[in-house]
Simulated assay, not measured.
Amino acid sequence: MTEARDAVLYRMVLSDHTCPFGVKAKQLLQHAGVTVDDRILRTRDEVDAFKAEHDVATTPQVFVGDERIGGSDDLERWLEGRSG
């Protein structure tokens, strides 16, 4: 399997709230040596539009290539599968 070295991370950072799961996902990717294209959703409207466009219920969402990995728990499992 080819090692993924680039990921796109969509995460919520509102003026009054930074999603801790988005922070965790970014840290997991960086720790794994993956380059992160960190795309910040800065308003509730941006978050809602993203969720509707990708048919997901939550953020963060991680994409590697054309594959949607999912949120931070899904990312943890995906990374464990790569190392095992």
Rank of each mutant, 00 (worst) to 15 (best):
2 T>H: 10
2 T>M: 13
2 T>D: 11
2 T>V: 11
3 E>W: 09
3 E>F: 10
4 A>C: 10
5 R>H: 13
5 R>I: 08
6 D>Q: 13
7 A>G: 01
7 A>T: 04
10 Y>G: 00
10 Y>C: 01
12 M>P: 00
12 M>K: 15
13 V>E: 05
13 V>N: 08
13 V>M: 10
15 S>V: 13
15 S>I: 11
16 D>P: 05
16 D>R: 13
16 D>L: 12
16 D>A: 12
17 H>W: 14
17 H>C: 10
17 H>L: 15
17 H>Y: 15
18 T>F: 09
18 T>V: 15
18 T>K: 14
18 T>Y: 07
18 T>W: 08
19 C>H: 03
20 P>S: 05
20 P>G: 01
23 V>Y: 02
23 V>S: 07
24 K>A: 14
25 A>P: 01
25 A>I: 03
26 K>G: 14
26 K>R: 15
27 Q>I: 13
28 L>I: 00
28 L>M: 09
29 L>D: 01
30 Q>H: 11
30 Q>R: 12
30 Q>N: 12
30 Q>E: 15
31 H>D: 14
31 H>E: 14
31 H>L: 12
31 H>V: 10
33 G>T: 02
33 G>M: 08
35 T>M: 10
36 V>W: 02
36 V>S: 02
37 D>G: 07
37 D>A: 10
37 D>E: 13
37 D>K: 13
38 D>S: 07
39 R>S: 01
39 R>N: 04
39 R>Y: 01
40 I>G: 01
40 I>Y: 01
40 I>K: 12
41 L>Y: 00
41 L>E: 00
42 R>E: 08
42 R>Q: 11
42 R>V: 02
43 T>Y: 02
43 T>Q: 01
45 D>K: 14
46 E>R: 00
46 E>I: 01
48 D>N: 14
49 A>P: 04
49 A>L: 13
51 K>D: 03
51 K>T: 02
51 K>E: 02
51 K>R: 11
52 A>N: 11
52 A>R: 15
52 A>C: 05
53 E>R: 15
53 E>I: 06
54 H>V: 09
54 H>W: 07
54 H>T: 09
55 D>K: 15
55 D>M: 07
55 D>V: 10
57 A>R: 15
57 A>N: 14
58 T>R: 06
58 T>P: 07
58 T>A: 09
59 T>V: 15
60 P>G: 08
61 Q>H: 05
61 Q>C: 06
61 Q>M: 03
61 Q>F: 05
62 V>H: 02
63 F>C: 03
64 V>G: 03
64 V>T: 11
64 V>N: 05
64 V>L: 09
64 V>D: 09
65 G>Y: 09
65 G>A: 07
67 E>C: 09
68 R>L: 10
68 R>H: 06
68 R>G: 06
68 R>V: 04
69 I>Q: 01
69 I>M: 04
70 G>V: 06
72 S>A: 14
72 S>K: 06
73 D>S: 11
74 D>L: 04
74 D>N: 10
75 L>E: 00
76 E>K: 12
76 E>Y: 08
77 R>E: 07
77 R>Q: 11
77 R>F: 07
78 W>F: 12
78 W>C: 05
79 L>S: 03
79 L>N: 03
79 L>T: 07
80 E>W: 10
81 G>I: 08
81 G>Q: 11
81 G>V: 08
81 G>K: 11
82 R>T: 07
82 R>S: 06
84 G>Y: 06
